[in-house]
Computed example of a mutant assay.
Amino acid sequence: MASLIEQAKKKAAYQAVDEHVLDSHKVIGVGSGSTVVYVVERLLQRDAAVNAKTVFVPTSFQSRGLLIDGGLSVGDVEQYPDIDVTIDGADEVDEHLNAIKGGGGAHLQEKVVAEAAKKFVIVADFRKNSKYLGEQGVPIEVVPMAWKAVLRKLQAMGSSTAKLRMAVAKAGPVVTDNSNFIIDAPFGLIKNPAQLLKDIKLITGVVEVGLFCDMAEIAYFGNEDGSVSIRSKP
């Protein structure tokens, strides 16, 4: 099953790069996560002369490392605020192309780079393809000093099992690339993700919410049978 999932990720990533990364593009945003490994792999298969004229904007320590290891030119959104296309993974995508991101704790940078792009493309495997969001919690990046206050407000909003994300190989919470904490807040099936996003963003101490609403133009899902399902914005 693991190999099928990896092949599904690879299929989706390769097709998305082939169809949306053009030789004329000068700045390309590169997201984070396991599927993005295959996005970078496909980018490295492009003509070297074309890549030499392209700047790649990563969204995390992970994607920055992948790009640098591949010998590609890396920039940031401050230097390159106008990005031609950003390709990123997702933890869950609904039928309207709203997404939950942040399983890897990089959703702040991911959202900044996605919003800076003329086109935002999602790549994922079949497990991430949903009718409604909410099969998992919403990752919320918070200022460390405010995490307890934010947690209480999220619980009052209906996420009774919201909790601080703890690190696996160290004692204490996960710390983001921006030196913040993450709260994972399950809300059940989310029928109106845009409203939930607004409500959470209004909580003092919240830096960013892992709900990406009305942002993606198209999503590619690699399937178990080797096919790729494409969902486009209406």
Score class of each variant (00 low, 15 high):
residue 232 S to P: 05
residue 61 F to N: 08
residue 32 S to P: 04
residue 17 V to C: 06
residue 109 Q to A: 14
residue 79 Q to H: 12
residue 23 D to R: 10
residue 92 E to T: 01
residue 194 A to S: 09
residue 64 R to W: 07
residue 112 V to Y: 12
residue 176 T to M: 13
residue 186 P to Q: 04
residue 212 F to Y: 09
residue 29 G to M: 07
residue 197 L to V: 02
residue 224 E to K: 12
residue 205 G to A: 09
residue 164 L to C: 13
residue 34 S to C: 11
residue 157 M to E: 14
residue 100 I to D: 05
residue 219 A to Y: 02
residue 115 E to W: 15
residue 127 R to N: 15
residue 29 G to P: 08
residue 144 P to S: 13
residue 177 D to C: 12
residue 91 D to M: 04
residue 78 E to Y: 07
residue 180 N to F: 10
residue 172 G to W: 11
residue 52 A to L: 09
residue 147 W to G: 10
residue 216 A to W: 00
residue 109 Q to H: 14
residue 219 A to K: 02
residue 22 L to S: 10
residue 184 D to Q: 11
residue 16 A to C: 04
residue 108 L to V: 15
residue 95 E to Q: 10
residue 150 V to P: 06
residue 163 K to S: 12
residue 215 M to S: 06
residue 73 S to N: 08
residue 107 H to D: 00
residue 65 G to D: 14
residue 218 I to W: 00
residue 69 D to E: 14
residue 6 E to G: 00
residue 130 S to N: 11
residue 74 V to P: 03
residue 228 V to H: 11
residue 31 G to Q: 02
residue 125 D to I: 00
residue 42 R to K: 11
residue 96 H to W: 02
residue 77 V to S: 09
residue 156 A to C: 10
residue 32 S to V: 13
residue 45 Q to H: 11
residue 67 L to G: 05
residue 80 Y to M: 06
residue 6 E to T: 01
residue 167 A to P: 06
residue 68 I to L: 10
residue 86 T to I: 03
residue 133 L to Q: 00
residue 78 E to K: 08
residue 192 N to Q: 09
residue 191 K to R: 12
residue 118 K to W: 14
residue 50 V to C: 04
residue 18 D to E: 14
residue 56 F to T: 02
residue 193 P to A: 02
residue 4 L to C: 05
residue 207 V to N: 05
residue 58 P to N: 06
residue 53 K to A: 09
residue 114 A to E: 13
residue 193 P to W: 01
residue 156 A to P: 07
residue 192 N to W: 08
residue 124 A to L: 00
residue 226 G to R: 03
residue 179 S to Q: 10
residue 198 K to R: 09
residue 106 A to L: 08
residue 86 T to R: 01
residue 10 K to A: 01
residue 39 V to A: 00
residue 115 E to Y: 15
residue 193 P to F: 01
residue 49 A to E: 14
residue 186 P to R: 03
residue 82 D to E: 13
residue 203 I to L: 15
residue 159 S to W: 07
residue 180 N to A: 10
residue 97 L to S: 04
residue 145 M to D: 10
residue 72 L to C: 03
residue 194 A to W: 04
residue 175 V to Q: 09
residue 104 G to K: 10
residue 44 L to N: 11
residue 154 L to K: 04
residue 59 T to M: 05
residue 72 L to R: 01
residue 140 I to V: 14
residue 153 K to L: 15
residue 218 I to E: 02
residue 79 Q to Y: 11
residue 31 G to I: 03
residue 117 A to T: 00
residue 157 M to A: 10
residue 183 I to G: 07
residue 10 K to T: 00
residue 197 L to K: 06
residue 48 A to P: 05
residue 111 K to W: 03
residue 187 F to S: 06
residue 209 V to M: 07
residue 113 V to M: 00
residue 27 V to D: 03
residue 108 L to Y: 15
residue 137 G to C: 06
residue 199 D to Y: 08
residue 155 Q to E: 15
residue 15 Q to S: 07
residue 98 N to F: 05
residue 184 D to T: 11
residue 181 F to S: 07
residue 155 Q to Y: 13
residue 163 K to D: 13
residue 147 W to F: 15
residue 139 P to A: 05
residue 32 S to H: 07
residue 84 D to S: 08
residue 18 D to T: 10
residue 187 F to A: 08
residue 21 V to W: 05
residue 58 P to D: 09
